[in-house]
């Protein structure tokens, strides 16, 4: 018998279950793109038959990090840049949990960049949503790793001299097995992409364009946007790494010129997830490790039985 009966529980899920019944109300500014992420998750999760207590949402620090204050699941609001290592470990501890990590562009591509690269490389079976508003929102508008070159802010008063980071290409090179970009202004696509990302077995990275009307006034609101799967002007095979790389590069190049490309960029359903790889080399238990601590009949090995080598 499982100690975690919310997991896989068969029941009707009410759409409102993911909205906290009591405070807090979101404190995001009116018009903030972060609402779009929240909404797409609130729709995607019940449509996938998930209930709030089988989901763990792990966030970083930023306006974006407040996501799990307003999404009623198990939540862990961690520290700046560190959502991924916390999320990864929770998934290894209990692979049956649905683990979603989320945070800002500063959080994920800047201070937490190392974790992002390695989580993608290892292909952990988690969903990673980056609220990309091309700015540091919470700390009041400083330049972020994705801010366009020339972007002026209080800390780059003459305009940023740095070329922005390429989130999609970097993720592809690092090894992510599902990579998409969506935008808060495109709720239907966003919901579908989030659903696919959650369903994907492996590291699913969603670069979610979230406009920040408060601090990034110059930036476009990501309209009009183009869905590369819908538009006749674009065609690529999402399973083809080279084609994906090419269109990702173009997408990153044109964003700051005002063309907002979105959609699925790369999907690799063949690559085993990290837990599968680890299991294959014999370093991952068959049963979720967390279950063992609640199993009164579990046998626990003792150091006493290791002493032969010391005698």
């Amino acid at each position: 018998m499982s100690a975690f009966n919310a997991i896989g529980e068969e029941r009707e899920i009410d759409r409102d279950e993911f909205t906290p019944g009591v405070e807090p109300q979101p404190t995001w500014c009116p018009g903030c793109g972060d609402f779009g992420v929240l909404k797409s998750l609130k729709q995607a999760l019940p449509e996938l038959g998930k209930n709030p207590e089988e989901v763990l949402t792990v966030t970083g620090i930023g306006c974006s990090g407040k996501l799990n204050s307003y999404l009623d699941t198990y939540g862990f609001h961690t520290i700046h840049g560190r959502s991924l290592p916390v999320a990864r470990a929770a998934k290894l501890a209990n692979p049956e949990l649905e683990v979603i990590a989320a945070g800002g562009d500063g959080d994920g591509y800047g201070i937490g960049g190392n974790h992002w690269i390695h989580s993608a490389r290892e292909n952990h079976d988690i969903t990673y949503i980056v609220f990309n508003n091309e700015i540091f929102g919470l700390t009041k508008g400083q330049t972020s790793p994705t801010s366009p070159k020339g972007h002026k802010s209080k800390t780059q008063p003459s305009g940023s001299a740095k070329t922005p980071l390429r989130p999609l290409s970097t993720s592809l090179n690092a090894g992510a097995s599902y990579i998409a970009r969506t935008a808060a202004v495109n709720p239907n696509q966003a919901k579908e992409i989030i659903k696919e990302a959650i369903e994907h077995d492996g590291f699913a990275h969603v670069d979610f364009l979230t406009q920040c009307p408060t601090w990034n006034k110059d930036a476009r609101q990501y309209v009009p946007y183009i869905d590369i799967q819908e538009s006749d002007d674009y065609e690529h095979d999402v399973n083809d790494r080279a084609e994906a790389a090419e269109i990702m590069r173009e997408t990153e190049d044109v964003l700051n010129e005002g063309t907002v490309l979105t959609g699925r960029y790369y999907v690799d359903d063949e690559r085993p997830s990290y837990s599968q790889e680890k299991h294959a080399v014999g370093e991952m238990p068959d049963q979720p490790l967390a279950e063992r601590y609640f199993d009164d009949d579990a046998e626990w090995e003792r150091s006493y039985d290791l002493l032969e080598r010391h005698k």
Partner: peptide, 11 residues
């Protein structure tokens, strides 16, 4: 952070 995450999830 991993140790914290694993502990949070019951290990």
């Amino acid at each position: 952070a991993l140790a914290v995450g694993a502990s949070h999830a019951g290990v």
